[in-house]
Amino acid sequence: MADKKVGGAGGVTRRALLKGAGAAGAAAALAGSVEALAQETDGGGAGGAVAGPGPVRMTLSVNGKARKIVAPPRRTLLDVLRSDLDLTGAKKACDRGTCGACTIWLDGKPVYACMVLAIEAIGHEITTIEGLGTPDALHPVQAAFGKHDALQCGFCTPGFVMTTAWAVEKHGKRLDRQLVMAETSGNLCRCGTYSHVIAAALDAAGAAADAAPDEREGR
């Protein structure tokens, strides 16, 4: 890319920035004082870079690969993954950071992709279910989900696997039933396959199998 970078934090190019600003003349006029202040780098201005509201060119690091996209600041990381990058493993269900179906890793930690803007994911490592394992080389948690039949309709499964894989990595053999329940509390399964998820998680972690699982126990 020959474009000069703006702002340093990564990825937004001056050309894309100018294109975006030009396409949104009306908004720019309304909020001109913010733009003027942001771009005034000396004399007491805030010294910033303005992107959008139109499309912005950016590069995201997804599953270890640099992916170039063009998206406005309002576009969520989830929409970019699914629609721009054709990574449809993360599911769009509630779109309000509640159900967990869109769970991905940002710098190795599970987050809701629906509640992250694509533009703020620049410079961070994004891992989706497609980057966790492959059909030929499943991640141990993916294999355990199969072995323990930890899915029914499967819609929540990619998100559940991402959270569970993080929890298994975090706790290792110390993982127990209560910890699995706490760490996956941000993932909902409307088929109600929670007890099988717990079994899969404990198996993948090499933790002691549940002694006396009570499937009616409250979540």
Partner: peptide
Amino acid sequence: AFRYVRVSGGAGDVGKLVRKGA
């Protein structure tokens, strides 16, 4: 749609922009 503004400084610069309506 909105414009996304990054600042190179700290909270003081953020505050200036908020005072302008951001």
